Simulated scan of single mutants.
Amino acid sequence: MTEDPTTKYPQPDLPQQEQEHPGSTGAMEPRPDHGEDSYVGSGQLTDRKTIVTGGDSGIGRAVALAFAREGADVLFTYLPEEEKDAQETVRLVEEAGRKAVAVACDIREEEQCRALVERAVSEFGRIDVLVNNAAYQMSQPDGIQAITTEQFDRVLKTNLYGMFWLSKMSLPHIPSGGSIINTTSVQAYQPSPHLLDYATTKAGIKAFTQGLAQMVASDGVRVNAVAPGPVWTPLIPATMPDTSEFGKQSPLGRPAQPAEMAPAYVFLASEKASFITAEIVNATGGTPLP
Rank of each mutant, 00 (worst) to 15 (best):
residue 177 G to L: 00
residue 174 I to Q: 06
residue 254 R to G: 12
residue 253 G to Q: 13
residue 241 P to T: 13
residue 254 R to H: 12
residue 172 P to A: 01
residue 182 N to G: 07
residue 251 P to G: 13
residue 186 V to D: 03
residue 250 S to Y: 02
residue 190 Q to C: 01
residue 223 V to D: 08
residue 211 G to C: 03
residue 245 E to H: 15
residue 174 I to P: 03
residue 241 P to I: 10
residue 173 H to W: 11
residue 222 R to G: 05
residue 219 D to W: 12
residue 184 T to K: 04
residue 236 I to H: 11
residue 267 F to D: 04
residue 260 E to F: 06
residue 244 S to R: 14
residue 188 A to D: 03
residue 234 P to Y: 10
residue 182 N to T: 08
residue 226 V to M: 09
residue 229 G to Q: 11
residue 187 Q to K: 03
residue 224 N to C: 10
residue 227 A to E: 09
residue 190 Q to P: 00
residue 254 R to Q: 13
residue 245 E to P: 00
residue 189 Y to D: 13
residue 183 T to Q: 06
residue 237 P to G: 05
residue 214 Q to H: 04
residue 242 D to T: 11
residue 187 Q to F: 00
residue 257 Q to F: 01
residue 214 Q to E: 06
residue 210 Q to C: 03
residue 242 D to R: 08
residue 269 A to G: 11
residue 172 P to Q: 06
residue 245 E to G: 15
residue 177 G to D: 07
residue 238 A to V: 09
residue 176 S to I: 00
residue 186 V to A: 12
residue 265 Y to N: 09
residue 251 P to R: 15
residue 192 S to V: 07
residue 214 Q to D: 03
residue 268 L to F: 10
residue 265 Y to L: 07
residue 177 G to K: 00
residue 203 A to G: 15
residue 193 P to R: 11
residue 206 K to Q: 14
residue 254 R to I: 05
residue 201 T to D: 01
residue 234 P to G: 11
residue 254 R to T: 09
residue 176 S to R: 09
residue 229 G to M: 10
residue 263 P to Y: 12
residue 228 P to D: 05
residue 219 D to Y: 12
residue 206 K to V: 15
residue 193 P to M: 13
residue 189 Y to R: 04
residue 247 G to V: 14
residue 184 T to E: 07
residue 190 Q to M: 09
residue 270 S to C: 15
residue 183 T to E: 02
residue 253 G to F: 13
residue 237 P to E: 04
residue 269 A to D: 04
residue 196 L to P: 01
residue 242 D to L: 01
residue 258 P to C: 02
residue 195 L to W: 09
residue 202 K to V: 02
residue 268 L to E: 13
residue 197 D to C: 14
residue 207 A to W: 00
residue 224 N to I: 07
residue 180 I to P: 01
residue 180 I to G: 01
residue 183 T to M: 08
residue 251 P to M: 14
residue 232 W to T: 05
residue 196 L to K: 01
residue 252 L to I: 15
residue 197 D to K: 09
residue 223 V to M: 05
residue 204 G to K: 01
residue 260 E to D: 12
residue 269 A to F: 14
residue 252 L to D: 09
residue 204 G to V: 02
residue 183 T to Y: 06
residue 238 A to Q: 02
residue 264 A to H: 15
residue 182 N to H: 08
residue 230 P to L: 06
